[in-house]
Design a binder for these strands. Structure first.
Length: 508
DNA sequence: CTATGGCACGGATT
DNA sequence: AATCCGTGCCATAG
């Protein structure tokens, strides 16, 4: 991927046009935002107008979203995902209320987010417009641990709305990453995390669940003082079990959701769920997985961009010596606007196709990913391969199940096989050697060499056969991976940098 | 002797 | 043209 040099030549030749479209395409949301901000700052010809259009019909409306008329989207159709560019990302409420460090020009790649924005982004699609200011209020009132220490009633009063409404918003916040944020107490946060884990239980987990719950509700302070014996007595279980319980809790739950590191022990390849801003959000029109898919391509500026018509007029009477540079500004601005439209257009078409092809994957997880190459997609879209590469590079998508993945993952050739492999090993009764595994995979229709099995194993962080004897120890050996379903979360990653898309986010 | 990890080569992908 | 990925071969550990 050779980058076209950032310098924008001012000539509106088609080659410049092309070059800029390309460059824009490979920018992800945050980068594009910066670019546009810069441009707005020093190009008077470019104007940002506070105009929103209905996401489906294009009618002008007052706030970002769907206009009342279109609120019911006509004719849901499974083969035609609804794809649109959405102005959702600019969260006015936050910008106004929130004034701690503004991390606008951080590093370019990721993590340009503070926690409130990060969460708001996740839940925005589910909020009614009036609810967004409530959410913003709540999020900016969190203390540094991510807990909400102010009374809910106060918020309700302030916004003149019912308690139930505020609670609904809080509930959404609590279930967004990092899970538990917005709880009133550490206990509440723990309980929510526990319940989220319970949605996708492993047998070992189910055994622990009831007592874990009880301990958290009643005896959390005993536990934190490590008074295991006393807890054991109260619950009528052995103190060894309490011990286990404690380990489980400290490993999987986090009483202070906003604190990123929590004994951050684990290291393995996993580029943990960092604070990546999705550039695209995929969700279902209704909650059900077979309702039509809605793809939202977030655009990093609010309202619309256009060439300032006033500027155009003034240009007519420009003083001689200014005329040229003003003309240049004008050209540059209109070029940018065009290119952005082009970029949006490309992204929309791209997503339409990806979603159509990978619908099963989006709904049902890794095992259903269809291997597809960028080249083939390029062919179907009738664009150059490099266009796809650029469009895909460095962008993140949020799936309906809330997980945020890199768009690259849709093109992972081996993910399907790796998931199969993982499942195979989970179900194994005796440790299977790589050769055995290769054999099994072959019979499942995945012809892979023995050597390759080893590689996949490594990618998934699964130990060699020798080291995983019983299936029970295995659970502790790798509490973090396995279970395709979800375990994304509780242990929120450090905000450590994650390089962009080198190795794929192995499974999860 | 078997199971794995390392290195390196060639074809596919970007 | 530059990279990535699957494999084969070989050395090493058990």
């Amino acid at each position: 991927m050779i980058l076209q040099s950032q310098s924008q030549s001012l000539r509106p030749l088609t080659t410049a046009h092309l070059a800029q479209t390309m460059t824009l395409l490979e920018l992800n949301g945050e980068q594009l935002r910066q670019k546009i901000e810069a441009e707005l700052a020093d190009n008077p010809a470019l104007e940002q107008i506070d105009e929103h259009r209905c996401l489906t019909c294009g009618r002008a409306i007052t706030a970002p979203g769907v206009c009342p008329l279109c609120n019911h989207i006509s004719e849901p159709n499974n083969d035609q995902p609804i794809v649109f560019v959405s102005p959702f990302t600019d969260f006015k409420p936050i910008d106004q209320v929130d004034d701690d460090e503004d991390c606008s020009d951080d590093d370019i790649n990721a993590i340009p987010e503070d926690l409130p924005t990060f969460i708001l982004r996740q839940i925005a699609p589910e909020l009614a417009i009036e609810e967004r200011s409530i959410a913003a209020h709540i999020l900016t009132s969190l203390d540094e641990d991510g807990l909400l220490r102010i009374p809910i009633i106060e918020i309700a009063r302030y916004h003149h709305c019912t308690l139930a409404r505020v609670e609904k918003v809080i509930k959404l916040i609590q279930h967004a990453e990092p899970i538990g944020t917005g709880s009133a107490t550490p206990q509440e946060a723990l309980l929510i995390q526990l319940d989220v884990l319970a949605e996708n239980p492993s047998p070992a987990f189910l055994r622990l669940y009831p007592s874990a719950r009880q301990v958290i509700v009643e005896d959390i302070d005993l536990l934190s003082r490590r008074a295991y014996n006393e807890v054991a007595r109260k619950l009528g279980i052995t103190s060894a079990e309490v011990q286990r319980l404690a380990t489980f809790i400290s490993e999987n739950l986090n009483p202070y959701p906003a604190r990123a590191h929590w004994g951050d022990i684990h290291h393995s390849s996993e580029p943990r769920h960092n604070y990546i801003t999705p550039d695209i959000i995929i969700s279902h029109l209704y909650e059900s997985p077979d309702s039509p898919i809605v793809v939202e391509i977030l655009s990093p500026y609010s309202g619309a961009l256009r060439v300032n018509p006033l500027f155009r007029e003034v240009l007519e009477q420009a003083p001689q010596e200014k005329a040229e540079s003003w003309q240049a500004h004008l050209d540059q601005a209109s070029l940018l606007v065009k290119c952005i439209q082009q970029r949006n257009n490309t992204m929309v078409r791209l997503m339409q196709n990806i979603v159509r092809i990978q619908r099963e994957f989006i709904n049902h997880g890794d095992a259903y990913l269809i291997p597809i190459t960028r080249a083939r997609l390029a062919f179907e879209l009738d664009v150059h391969e490099s266009t796809i590469s650029r469009a895909v590079a460095g962008k993140a998508v949020q799936l309906p199940n809330r997980r945020i993945i890199l768009l690259d993952k849709f093109f992972d050739r081996s993910l399907q096989i790796r998931t199969a492999l993982r499942e195979l090993i989970e179900k194994e009764t005796r440790p299977l050697s790589d050769t055995d595994l290769a054999q099994k995979l072959l019979s499942m229709g995945y012809p892979v060499a023995r050597r390759t099995v080893a590689k996949y194993r490594a990618m998934e962080g699964i130990l060699p056969a020798r080291f995983r004897s019983g299936s029970s120890q295995e659970i502790q050996a790798q509490t973090s991976r396995q279970k395709p379903g979800l375990r994304p979360s509780i242990r929120v990653a450090t905000a450590a940098v994650n390089g962009l898309a080198n190795h794929n986010p192995p499974g999860k």
